[in-house]
Amino acid sequence: MTQLDIVRQHVATLETALTRYVEGNGIRFAYRLLGPATGTPLVLLQHFSGNIDAWDPAVVNALAADRPVIAFDNAGVGRSTGQTPDNIETMARDAVAFINLLGLPEVDLLGFSLGGCVAQQIAADHGRLVRKLILVGTAPKGGEEHLLAVLQQAFSQTDAPDPRLPLFFTKSSASQSSGLAFLKRTKLRKDDRDTDNGKAVTDPQAKALITWCATPDPEHAILRAIRQPALVVSGSHDTMLPASNAYAMFKELSNAQLVLYPDSGHGALFQHHEIFVSHVRTFLQAQSAAA
């Protein structure tokens, strides 16, 4: 990495960062790199149907103020090539391949929704690769989900400016106002925006998420295989992956903290972005006997 690259990292934001590419295993991964050149990188694992530009700049930029942050498109998503898998295990394998292609010996993971399922699989399978993980608005294997019903309801609300408004936020005026502000932030990048690959992504992703939650794991094998410190986060009124999932994960993980945000839905991290970033920073910076 040249000195110019390092300078660009320091000044780049999610809205301005160069979209980079790395290729291996038959996949050309698209990603953006923010933050300083030193420190344990925080790799972001995105939600169902989302790409790099679906992340909230208020979250990503703030997290990148004091650590390297990497937002990327997994196989078949956005500008990454390959085929989107229909199962969590292969999504996790592809994400690990991406991390290895970047030559990163150790990372922290932030997995949101579907990305949280992928993060669990990676942490369980690759204990030395993952230092800490943040699981947001997600579910354990065998957990509770209402994806299709909630999606149908959201897309039936034709008066909503974006389906994410009813999907990610509650009906309260405060939550809806936060939702509109979030949508505005996600549109700040005007040039070199990521691409939406439609049903080629959403169909297999929906199958992967539904199958993950429909597959019983009575012994909680994946959660009990995760020894890393974990921060589990949920909104109080998440209709897609209810907060009961967060409590279930918290109970079974060996070293977890649980945070629930009030009057918030699936997008609690975007609605309460300032306190969420504060919680994540505190968690990542804290010393832990299990870290």
Rank of each mutant, 00 (worst) to 15 (best):
S288W: 02
H220A: 12
G142C: 03
R28W: 09
V280S: 03
W55Y: 06
T90M: 14
A54H: 09
V43P: 02
A124K: 07
V43Q: 02
G82E: 11
K199I: 09
D86L: 06
A246H: 06
G76L: 09
D191Y: 13
L104A: 11
A54W: 08
I99W: 01
L209P: 01
Q120T: 00
G116R: 02
I52Q: 02
R67W: 11
T195L: 15
L148W: 00
Q271M: 10
S49Q: 04
P85D: 04
A286H: 07
N255T: 08
L284P: 06
L241S: 04
F276W: 09
T170Y: 06
G76W: 07
Q46L: 14
I6F: 02
T19E: 11
G111L: 01
E15Q: 12
Q205W: 01
L102D: 11
A214M: 09
F48Y: 13
Q228E: 10
F72I: 07
S236R: 02
L284E: 06
M240C: 07
I122D: 04
L180K: 12
A54L: 04
V233M: 05
T90K: 12
A290M: 13
R79N: 14
P163R: 07
L151T: 08
P41H: 04
R28Y: 10
D53M: 01
A290W: 15
A160C: 11
Q83G: 05
H146K: 10
F29S: 00
L109H: 03
D203Y: 15
E23F: 05
A290G: 00
D108W: 00
L110T: 07
A208L: 08
N61I: 09
S178N: 14
V7S: 12
N245H: 08
P216Y: 13
D73M: 08
I52V: 09
L148S: 11
D125Q: 13
A291Y: 09
K132D: 12
Y31P: 03
I210Q: 09
S236A: 14
F155C: 00
R224Q: 13
D94P: 00
S177Y: 11
G111A: 05
I6W: 01
P242N: 07
F155P: 00
A75G: 06
K207A: 09
A37H: 14
A64V: 12
A64D: 10
I52N: 01
P216V: 06
M1L: 10
H237Q: 15
T2H: 03
I99E: 11
N74Q: 13
V280F: 05
N87A: 06
Q153K: 12
Q83T: 15
P204A: 02
E144R: 07
D86F: 05
R185M: 10
S113L: 01
G50D: 07
S177V: 07
A243N: 08
G179Q: 07
D125M: 08
A62V: 01
G265P: 12
D196C: 05
